[in-house]
Simulated assay, not measured.
Amino acid sequence: MFRPFSAARFALVLLLVSAAPAVAAGLDAAAINDEAAPPARLPDRRQLSAFIARLEILLDRAHFSPGEIDGKLGDNAQKALRAFAEASGVPFDKAVTAELWSSLTAASDGPAIVSYTIVDADVKGPFVKRIPAKMESMKSLPALGYTSPREALAEKFHMSEALLQALNPGRKFNKAGETIAVANVVDAGNATPIARVVVDKTRQTLSTFDAAGKLLGFYPATVGSADKPTPSGALKVTAINKNPTYRYNPKYAFKGVRSKTPFTIRPGPNNPVGVIWINLSGEGYGIHGTPDPGKISKAESHGCVRLTNWDVQRVAVGVAKGTPVAFVDSATSLGAVTETR
């Protein structure tokens, strides 16, 4: 939970952040919060940028998810920016115009970076020393928890661990009562009911709409693979499972999994399907979270739709049993996608 923002606590964060050399020159809470106007040219996608960090936070708060907030203009951030511009009726072509920036900053209030005081729940664990690379090795673990308080806090605030560390140089994030700088992202709250979901297999995105056809949320996704493609057409939500176990069936024949007998992997944020499983009517298909938020849209799935853990939570609070989920190969316009029955 966020503690109320105050100038005194924010000043404390700035003092703490300035106590050690910055990982990226000029990248601190003040630099991000002070980004009041877009640059004439967007930074290189490999460059860690205060402007991009603020841009990603604003997109996240508007429910146009950039995926993991990392301060870099990667594919997911660009997809979210283009989708926001299209939904807002504002032109976008390789530059953030004053009009687009104004629309984005008007979508939410408050500074992009705020102070947060670490609480006991953030550091008590239990934590897993190491997540095995092979699925078979995961079955012996009592839970698939976070590997460190830093990983837990980064996910709590939708950030990459690298950006969290850059904003808090020298911190270990393992002491309750310590104040750190974090992205000012809001939790899901009471979401507007989702009337339909559209999964674009070409763009690797998931969009949600209300009953009037208004776009509610836009999320980067990992959608199937060449070996295990997702379906086409329409499915429906049949169940929503929080903190799911993962049961492997040898019939799946996943690459790298040699087990000839079924096995179960226990719940946790580092479970192969993350913290939420939204079951779909097609056999074995679902929308779920991930233990690797930085790989969303950059890797392959086993036929399902994979989102970050925080994005799938946002979707889960809005859908219900029977919500239609349309799989399309491409959508020329977000608003033009019609429900497939």
Rank of each mutant, 00 (worst) to 15 (best):
G303V: 04
G318S: 07
L216G: 02
V223R: 00
S330R: 11
T332P: 00
G318I: 11
V317F: 05
G282Q: 14
P262V: 03
K298S: 10
F327Y: 13
G335L: 09
I265P: 00
Y252Q: 15
D227Y: 10
N241V: 12
E283C: 04
R266S: 14
R258D: 15
K255V: 12
A226S: 15
G335Q: 05
Y252N: 12
N279A: 15
Y219K: 01
L334T: 06
R247I: 11
G217P: 02
Y252V: 08
A221P: 02
V317K: 05
I265F: 04
W277I: 08
P293Y: 11
V305A: 06
S330G: 02
S301T: 08
V257N: 01
Y246L: 10
E283T: 14
L215G: 02
L216D: 03
D329G: 15
D227S: 14
A299R: 09
S232D: 08
P220F: 08
P244K: 03
K255Y: 03
N243S: 13
E300S: 15
T323R: 01
N243P: 01
I240K: 02
A253H: 13
N271R: 05
I276W: 11
V319F: 08
D311P: 05
T264V: 14
T230H: 02
P272H: 07
K255E: 11
Q313N: 13
G256A: 06
V317I: 12
L280A: 09
G274D: 06
R258K: 09
N249I: 07
K255A: 10
Y285P: 00
N243R: 03
A253G: 04
R247E: 06
R266A: 10
F327D: 00
V305Q: 02
A299H: 13
S232K: 07
R306H: 07
A316C: 07
G322K: 01
K260T: 12
A226N: 03
S333H: 07
K242C: 03
G224H: 08
D227G: 10
T230E: 10
P291H: 11
I287T: 09
P293W: 07
K228D: 14
V223Y: 05
V273I: 14
F254L: 14
P231L: 08
A212E: 10
S297D: 14
A211F: 01
G274R: 01
R266C: 06
A234F: 05
K255L: 06
P267D: 08
Q313D: 15
A326H: 13
Y248I: 06
N243T: 13
F263S: 00
V325P: 01
G322Y: 08
A212Y: 01
D292F: 07
A331V: 15
R247D: 03
W310E: 13
K214D: 11
P262C: 06
V275M: 08
A234W: 04
W310Y: 15
K228R: 13
D329K: 01
V273Y: 03
I276D: 00
V275A: 09
N241M: 10
R306G: 13
A253E: 13
H302P: 01
S281F: 14
K298N: 05
K228G: 02
A212P: 00
T290A: 07
V312T: 10
D292W: 06
F218K: 00
T261E: 10
G268K: 07
